[in-house]
Design a protein around this nucleic acid. Structure first.
Length: 425
RNA sequence: GCGGUUGUGGUGAAGUUGGUUAACACACUGGAUUGUGGCUCCAGCAUUUCGCGAGUUCGAGUCUCGUCAACCGCCCCA
């Protein structure tokens, strides 16, 4: 048992300049959501396990990856995703009560937990931003959701993002298609890989995603979902596509795109970099869903939403050089020399009160060291006080850009600093 | 859950067939310059220490095993 005091696998400390990346991203997201009329909702980080462990999940794999623990009689689970908690809250607070306020447009942002094998951009504690528009069903709402995600990607400076979009149709269409797929692949089962055999039973839609088999002959002629959509599903999808066209959002119909879980219907989408190679590439992904609100007892209301992995967004944006960390800086640096007691601190505090960012030395380091620190902080003004200045309540004020220096009385320091900073702009 | 690569100061890293004092550089600290920085020069900076633990050996950063972690691929991706 080694290194007891290190972060658990798949978690990380965010420190130094990295934190500023997160703050920038969070700010962009909040601003965009406000423009689109989405309000923040903050739900607990853990919920009763039943909230996440919904019935009829086609993959019971996922529950194996949940952080579940018992306290007293309760089985609780750290949230592995955002949607379920939001829907639970929507129902619990009867947000469906006033039809005039539907859809409720909500967004969430925060840590999620999944016990997976970590890889780059994939952690056990990771952060997701997501939106849910609950209580109305419209192609327009779907398009708006995609537009919001696309806008945020653009504001983060991500280039060459395209939307993969597909329609799973309504339940009837989907069931017909599922049966058709099973029917179609039945004679080819011998040719398919082991994983596809499992998918054949559990989730035939996923067979089309298979990396091993996808180039095989029998895949080329596999039935497509679009041939199984009924009339209303087709109309719905056509309007979504028209909306994307009209808003100038680049998209591509991908009839192999299926989401993992059963509750999705009609529109599903996934934003990926145009040159995406791996499967880890999705920038944000989501879709329209029926039945989820009803599952939590809120009646027959639909929703649409997406989730966005922030670690991945930040990685991409940094790689593409569109997001830079904020370096530490201060307007003013106060250098103290000799025994000046608290005089340097007084000046620092007075200037901070006046609204400037001010740093100082706390360790009585050498003059050279203090100058170096002020350089590192990119300070525009350096104030130097020694025993003489302390005695007659003055200070040396140095304009770093002009390399000029003057003696200034304590009472006029703030004004002098202000003039120098103004002159530098 | 499965397979693979890797792990040396604050950072980037060198380290020969196991051999005695773990190179070099950056950063940092002090000095040359008793109160004026960025250049230069000098000095210091891993000290039972090479992720952690055990083993082989006269001797292990180098070999073996275990363990932890990061990364890559698979599974999965709510």
């Amino acid at each position: 048992m080694a290194n007891k005091y290190q972060v658990p696998r798949g978690t990380q400390d965010f420190l130094g300049e990295t934190v500023s990346l997160w703050q920038k991203v969070e700010t962009i997201i909040r601003e965009e959501c406000a423009r689109y009329g989405y309000s923040e909702i903050r739900t607990p980080i853990f919920e009763h396990t039943e909230v996440f462990k919904t019935e009829n999940d086609s993959s019971d794999m996922v529950t194996k990856e949940m952080y579940t623990f018992n306290m007293g009689d309760s089985s609780l689970t750290l949230r592995p995703e955002g949607t379920k908690g939001v829907i639970r809250s929507f129902v619990e607070h009867k947000m469906y009560g006033n039809p005039a306020e539907l859809p409720q447009k909500l967004y969430y942002m925060g840590p999620m937990f999944r016990h997976e094998r970590p890889q780059k951009g994939r952690y056990r504690q990771f952060h997701q931003f997501g939106i849910e528009a609950i209580g109305a069903k419209s192609p327009l709402l779907d398009v708006e959701a995609i537009a919001l995600g696309y806008d945020i990607s653009k504001k983060l400076g991500l280039k060459n993002i395209k939307i993969l979009v597909n329609s799973l149709g309504d339940e009837e269409s989907r069931n017909n298609y599922r049966n058709a797929l099973r029917e179609y692949f039945k004679p080819y089962l011998d040719e398919l890989c082991e994983d596809c055999h499992r998918r054949y039973e559990q989730n035939p839609l996923r067979i089309l995603d298979c990396k091993i088999d996808k180039d095989k002959e029998c895949f080329r002629n596999a039935p497509s979902i679009k041939d199984y959509l009924n009339e209303s599903s087709k109309e719905y999808f056509a309007l979504v596509l028209k909306g994307l066209d009209d808003l100038g959002i680049p998209y591509e119909i991908d009839d192999h795109l299926v989401r993992g879980l059963d509750y999705y219907s009609n529109t599903v989408f996934e934003a990926v970099p145009v040159d995406a190679t791996g499967q880890q590439a999705a920038v944000f992904a989501g879709g329209q869903y029926d039945g989820l609100v009803n599952y939590f007892g809120g009646g027959d209301l639909p929703g649409v939403g997406f989730g966005m992995g922030l670690e991945r967004m930040i990685n991409l944006a940094v790689e593409q050089n569109s997001l830079q960390p904020e370096t530490r800086h201060s307007d003013v640096y106060v250098i103290s020399l000799g025994n000046v007691s608290t005089y340097g601190l007084q000046i620092t505090q007075m200037l901070r009160d006046a609204g400037y960012s001010v740093e100082m030395d706390y360790q009585g380091r050498s003059l050279k060291a203090q100058f170096k620190t002020s350089d590192r902080l990119n300070s525009k003004v350096i104030i130097i006080v020694g025993e003489d200045e302390c005695g007659n309540k003055t200070a040396q004020v140095k304009d770093v850009a002009n390399k000029t220096q003057e003696t200034v009385e304590f009472a006029r320091l703030s004004e002098t600093v202000g003039n120098i900073l103004k002159g530098n702009e």
